[in-house]
């Protein structure tokens, strides 16, 4: 689905990620752990074409997409749910969702209705609040809007950047359950960044550890759970 090889990314004159190696197979949930400032978000944004100059190899669905624009990546089915949560506060929930649909380059009404129905099936709270301004929603609900908007884009691969930051513990479980359901029922592949390591481990197939802009280790959740020495790498 996604493979990243010798990838470098950063901000103008601030190199952050260097030589990253990473892959996500079809239908896999892969977590990326690392301390604050390790470069997890930068890696995701770089792969997603949001940052200017990145170097390296990125393959998505068997196509070389390094340097491709966000627009074309979204049309291919890669969608980022950014860390900053980022709903459009003065737009209604429904309008926020529509932004995701438009971003996928689709315009057929029937396809919109189909995706909307599925999305609201996963996130029923959005149906209740669809005519409210997104800025009036609680943090947890805004996160649902953000994920819902990504689903409206019809993703094949979701890049989820800390979807549970600042949420109550039971909501974190809800989000992890949602991620698993999306994989089971929609066949989504997910690259997940999380600070709630325990909960993320429980749903992940594989895990990468990141430090100082480098991917320093790849492991299975079991290895991470049982091996103290892996944690010492941090």
């Amino acid at each position: 689905m996604l493979s990243v090889h010798d990838f470098h990314a950063g901000y103008p004159s601030v190199p952050v990620v260097s030589g990253a190696e990473l892959r996500v197979e079809r239908g896999e949930i892969v977590s990326l752990f690392g301390h604050n400032g390790a470069g997890k978000s930068t890696l995701m944004k770089g792969v997603f074409g949001v940052l200017g100059d990145c170097r390296g190899e990125v393959r998505f669905n068997d196509a070389a997409v390094a340097g491709a624009s966000t627009r074309s990546l979204m049309r291919r089915g890669m969608v980022l749910v950014p860390q900053e949560r980022g709903v459009f506060p003065s737009l209604t929930v429904a309008e926020n969702l529509r932004m995701g649909f438009w971003a996928s380059g689709e315009s057929a009404r029937a396809e919109y209705d189909r995706r909307l129905a599925r999305t609201l099936g996963y996130l029923p709270i959005l149906d209740e609040r669809k005519d409210d301004r997104a800025g009036e929603l609680s943090g947890g609900q805004q996160q649902m809007v953000s994920i819902g908007r990504a689903l409206l884009a019809g993703p094949k691969l979701l890049l989820l950047d800390e979807p549970s930051t600042g949420l109550a513990p039971n909501l974190v479980d809800d989000i992890m359950a949602l991620v698993t359901r999306l994989r089971e029922e929609e066949g989504l592949s997910v690259l997940l960044v999380e600070q709630n390591v325990g909960q993320a481990l429980a749903v992940s197939d594989r895990v990468y550890l990141m430090k100082g802009g480098r991917i320093i280790h790849e492991a299975t959740p079991d290895q991470l759970t049982w091996s103290r020495s892996l944690w010492d790498l941090f």
């Binding site: 624009s69 979204m74 980022l80 980022g86």
Partner: peptide, 17 residues
């Protein structure tokens, strides 16, 4: 709607291409 989204957060609109 896209113009209104830009009023809210133009950078985020960019994240959606």
């Amino acid at each position: 709607v896209i113009l209104r989204a830009m009023m809210d957060d133009a950078a985020l609109v960019g994240v959606f291409g």
